[in-house]
């Protein structure tokens, strides 16, 4: 399986993401520039965390107009898996691939800590290797992770089982304790916690690794790869 890690100006978790795929998962991965437009050789796209364009205007807003994002939208249309973490999640929200928006954390602080997260839906291609309602430990590191949407959107998210991760101990004020959501088709996931920083117990937690393993397992099932 071949993964793309999109690098925007100001991305800073791109190396972590590459490490997670290459060293922890053991699959092919390469960086791709925000200026590129060709994603045809990839099976999955990863949007890493960081501060694309310095968080100017709003987090993720300028990056959502990068040339690569048109291809990312087409990739989503083609039902291929896309994962956005932290700033990558914010880019997915700003580009309209996922509903809602991010506000400043309720306590106005940059929060950097490991936090318990509940797997609220293990029937996605990103979470099938977890137990339903499993409590996992993932690091968060953000100032704007306070998820906001209107009540109708929240109801729709609940109805279609799109809330994939919830905070066990809501650190930032997110509506519905939302830590991660997917689109209706289930092939685009955005989340604030960093699974790529939790792929080895030496890093404090290996709970994030199964997210990447889920993507791989589901891709193999669909493509019947024996190698």
């Amino acid at each position: 399986m071949r993964f793309a890690v999109v690098v925007f100006p100001g991305s800073n978790c791109d190396m972590d993401m590459l490490f997670a795929i290459q060293d922890a998962l053991g699959e092919d991965v390469e960086y791709i520039s925000h200026r590129d437009q060709d994603l045809s050789r990839f099976d999955a796209v990863l949007l890493p965390g960081g501060f694309s364009y310095g968080d100017y205007l709003r987090s993720g807003s300028i990056a959502s107009f990068s040339p690569i994002m048109e291809s990312v939208k087409a990739f989503a249309q083609a039902d291929k898996p896309i994962l956005g973490v932290c700033n990558g999640f914010q880019v997915l929200l700003e580009s309209g691939l996922l509903p809602g928006a991010m506000k400043r954390n309720e306590n106005l602080k940059f929060i950097c800590q490991t936090t318990p997260v509940i797997v609220a839906n293990n029937e996605t291609q990103f979470t099938s290797e977890y137990q339903q309602d499993e409590r996992i430990q993932l690091p968060i590191a953000h100032a704007e992770g306070n998820y906001e949407c209107d009540d109708a959107t929240l109801e729709k998210l609940e109805q279609h089982n799109q809330i994939v991760f919830r905070y066990a101990d809501n650190p930032n004020g997110s509506k519905g304790d939302i830590a991660g959501i997917c689109n209706e088709k289930g092939n685009v996931l955005g989340m604030m916690p960093h699974p790529e920083r939790a792929v080895d117990s030496l890093l404090g937690s290996a709970d994030g690794l199964r997210l990447f393993q889920s993507i791989l397992v589901n891709w193999r099932e669909h493509h019947a790869v024996t190698s």
């Binding site: 205007l57 709003r58 107009f65 906001e148 949407c149």
Partner: peptide
């Protein structure tokens, strides 16, 4: 389209 985010 850009200057404001109509969601919030």
């Amino acid at each position: 389209q850009l200057l404001a985010n109509p969601v919030i």
